[in-house]
Amino acid sequence: MHAALTGLDPRQRRALELIYGEHRTQREVATALEISRRRVARIVATALQTVARDLRSDKPGPLPVE
């Protein structure tokens, strides 16, 4: 799991830490990261996809940005 998390960029990792580690809402995360709530939702969704993919594969790496 740690290896999968290291494949994330710092903003993705921080968003997951705030939501899942500190039980913050998306609104609170948006305020803390100074971004929109919609952007938080996208960052978290992409981060979770990346972690899931990396846990299934031998070679971790970030997802391409759309």
Rank of each mutant, 00 (worst) to 15 (best):
G21T: 07
L5H: 11
R11I: 12
R27N: 00
T31K: 12
V29I: 09
E28V: 01
V51S: 09
G21S: 09
K59P: 00
V40E: 08
P64R: 08
L5V: 09
D54C: 15
H23T: 07
L18S: 02
A30T: 03
L33C: 02
P64L: 08
A3G: 07
I19C: 09
R11V: 14
V65W: 05
R13M: 13
T6P: 00
P62C: 11
G21P: 06
R39G: 01
L48N: 11
E28Q: 15
P64Y: 04
A4W: 12
R24F: 02
E17M: 10
A41Y: 05
L48I: 05
E28D: 12
R39L: 10
T31C: 00
K59C: 11
T46F: 04
H23F: 08
A4G: 13
H23I: 00
R38P: 00
L63W: 14
H23C: 06
R38H: 08
Y20C: 06
R39V: 04
R42M: 12
E17C: 08
A41I: 08
I43M: 02
E34A: 11
T6Y: 12
R37W: 00
H23V: 04
A32I: 05
Q12C: 08
V65P: 01
T31Q: 11
P62H: 10
R37P: 03
D58S: 13
L16S: 02
P62M: 12
M1P: 08
G61R: 10
A3M: 12
R38K: 11
R42A: 14
L8W: 03
R39C: 08
T25P: 06
A30F: 01
L55R: 10
D9S: 05
S57D: 13
L16M: 06
R24Q: 14
R56G: 08
A30K: 01
A30E: 02
D58G: 14
P10H: 03
I35G: 07
V44Y: 09
R27W: 00
K59M: 13
R14P: 02
G7W: 10
E66C: 00
Q26Y: 13
A45P: 04
E17G: 07
E22W: 09
V65L: 10
V51E: 09
R56L: 15
Y20L: 07
R27I: 00
H2W: 12
I43H: 04
D58M: 13
T31D: 10
D58L: 15
R53F: 02
R37Q: 15
L33D: 02
A4N: 13
E22H: 15
A47Y: 11
I43Q: 02
R37F: 00
G61F: 14
S57P: 00
A32W: 01
T6S: 12
V65D: 07
A3R: 15
A3Y: 11
T31F: 07
S36T: 15
R37C: 01
S57A: 13
Q12L: 06
G7M: 10
V40D: 05
V51P: 05
A30D: 01
A41G: 09
R11P: 01
